[in-house]
Amino acid sequence: MPRFLPPWLEEREEMKPDMMVTEAVPRKTAGMRRLAQSPVMLNWMYLPALLLFAVFIYYPFFRGLLISFTDWDGYSQALHYIGIDNYKRMLSDSRVHTVIINTLIYGVGSTLFQNIFGLLYALLLNKHGKGKTFVRVIVYIPAIVSPIIMGYIWYFLLQYNGGAINDIITAFTGKPVNLLADPKVNVWIIMVVNTYQFLGIAMMIFLSGLQGISKDYYEAAEMDGATPFNRFFNITFPLLAPALTTSIILNLIGGLKLFDVIAALTNGGPGYASASLSTMMYQLYFARQDAGLAASLGNLMFLLITAISLTSLYFLRRKELSQ
């Protein structure tokens, strides 16, 4: 009968210890068996994934890396290598500085708020009260909607002419306010919208964290006469540290790459005043026809996000261990 499975998936009767003793096995085969048992042999399991990554992410990524050393316009067949000119231009461009600050506001700011509110909501919806499932669903639903659509929904709320929020403002003051025009304000609005959308994910992560904490801890604490405040900081919070790590890393990466909401609300404007690295890169690439500079910006963004996530991962893990 032909084999259905490659040998490494067959059940290995002969591996049972009692058989090992009785059967006389040639040395060579035993060595191979040891190899089969060694952890290294398990690494085949990630080979399919690794192959996909190599072909569809890392190969194009390194090709893209090279674009940053050219003066390519993003579409023609003509391109010249110009060394690190694009990087020089990027670093001396004052707009890029604004955009980096904006990106940090979007990334770090929304991560902060998502986690604070996510935790508060999780505490609120963990045990008490009726209809908590309903509230959970409501808080989570925005995460389901496509971000570009979310941007448009908020545009309906925020727009100057006939925007829902301005209807209320007009009712009180008689005059609408152009909320999205002022770069001092619109950057924060975008941050709030992103927080609103993905708050639900942080909440779910904390909720599941809370449900994994054994009641015994609290009962013991209660016997010791700990206040609720004490209980939170001495039991709940430390035990949630791993949940916090997951939540922070996912939110950070998402926030630092923010694109759709900005595109829908302000398109990065006025000028580049509310742009993030993603939206500026997009505009440089397609509208400005400055693909070389766009690619440099992309690489900067890659470095920035890597640095921030690794640093936070390092501190968060250390905190986890020290608890």
Binding site: A49, F56, I57, P60, L277, A295, G298, N299
Partner: peptide, 24 residues
Amino acid sequence: WVYGIFVSALIVPPLTILVPLYKL
């Protein structure tokens, strides 16, 4: 290292790889 390679792909900005990927 392999784990790092997998997770860092979360960070790759899609636009920088768009054109090479399309060509591929």
